[in-house]
């Protein structure tokens, strides 16, 4: 333990909000102007506590009879031994005291691509979005081509992307001090690409292999991809809390998927997105074999008990309006 000391005022997430050098012990802390550390905290007493050498040669914080006391891990302490990592609370202020010989952790390896900031990711993300939008309109365009459909789709997609990325940029600025709009735009474009690609892949696979589940629950996969996107946005804002970000994303995904299932159930009476698979492709993509008419009708015959069971269920629905 070597003088001088640094008294650090911390934010709730552990970041240092304010750091002050003190040359020697004892360090008087309080709201009064005759203290070494002056706390701008209405809940701190005029002379709240003092940090001094303890009998065993370490540091300790001692309560000077303050109204709200010295709190460590939720408990009042009259005398609290301090290591460089002990955080204690005076009023609403969280404090930590370190001597200059406090050993700091090794530097983290810098994995950030500093060239991949600003215009390059923004432009590439933008180009991806334009291409995706044009492709999706083209592939679903079953009428005579009209340019206006491409324009409206493009404008609405870019507008949506702007709002989405704008939100993340704002969050980035708030929590990490820099905007990184280009990166967020690129992440959104990649997410969109993955959504389009997996949707097509799943749909074609479902058709080829007769795996109807893939389209029946297509929205669940989209939700998973969006959660992945959110992870990368969070990661861009703060690289330090990877696990926390992952947890948030898993929660978002579970919540989204639950809401989607509930919506489907409310709207259609079943959990799937659709009653039957309607996706059709070229027969050259077919891989599974055709069933016989008898096999198909046997399958239908086995459904009868399930349908009959529905009869006894009470419905609180509306009676259909029928004209005569």
């Amino acid at each position: 333990m070597t003088a001088p000391f640094y008294v650090e005022v911390l934010a709730r997430n552990g970041e240092v909000r304010q750091r002050q050098r003190v040359e020697m012990l004892p360090i008087r802390i309080g709201r009064g102007y005759d203290n070494d550390i002056i706390l701008d905290d209405q809940h701190a007493s005029t002379h709240h506590a003092v940090v001094e050498a303890s009998a065993d040669g370490g540091l300790q914080a001692r309560d000077l009879g303050s109204r709200n006391g010295v709190i460590h891990q939720g408990k009042h302490q009259n005398q609290l031994p301090l290591s460089g990592n002990t955080i204690f609370r005076l009023g609403h202020s969280r404090l930590r005291v370190r001597s200059i010989d406090f050993p700091v952790a090794d530097a983290m390896r810098d994995t950030t691509l500093h060239a991949w900031e600003g215009w390059p990711p923004a432009l590439i993300g933008l180009a991806m979005m334009v291409l995706l939008s044009l492709e999706s309109v083209w592939s679903a365009d079953i009428e005579k081509s009209e340019p206006i459909r491409y324009v409206t789709s493009l404008v609405s997609l870019l507008g949506l992307a702007l709002v989405w990325c704008g939100g993340w940029t704002l969050a980035n600025r708030l929590f990490a001090g820099q905007t990184r709009f280009g990166r967020h735009l690129f992440i959104a474009a990649c997410g969109l690409l993955v959504i389009e690609a997996t949707s097509l892949l799943f749909s074609v696979t479902a058709y080829a292999m007769s795996l109807e589940m893939l389209t029946h629950y297509g929205s669940q996969f989209v939700i998973a991809i969006v959660a992945g996107m959110v992870y990368f946005h969070l990661h861009t804002i703060n690289t330090a809390h990877t696990r926390r970000a992952a947890l948030v994303c898993i929660l978002v995904a579970l919540l989204g998927s639950g809401v989607m299932l509930m919506l489907n159930y409310q709207k259609n009476g079943h959990l799937a997105d659709e009653l039957y698979m309607s996706d059709l492709y070229s027969p050259t993509l077919r891989l599974s074999s055709n069933k016989s008419v008898t096999q198909f009708l046997d399958q239908a015959a086995r459904l009868q008990p399930k349908i009959d069971a529905e009869r006894s269920k009470v419905v609180s629905g509306e009676s259909a309006e029928v004209s005569d």
Binding site: S210, E212, N268, G269, H270, E274, L275, Y276, M277, S278, L280, R286, S288, S289, N290, K291, S292, V293, Q295, F296, Q299, A300, L303, K306, I307, E310, R311, K313, V315, S316, G317, E318, S319, A320
Partner: peptide
């Protein structure tokens, strides 16, 4: 092939529709 009207699940006259689907020849 999509959006064929097969009746809703809140109909007081009928139970919710249920389907089987298959590639058949």
């Amino acid at each position: 092939f999509k959006n064929q009207n097969l009746g809703g699940h809140k109909d007081l006259r009928f139970t919710p529709p249920q389907c089987v689907e298959q590639f058949v020849s």
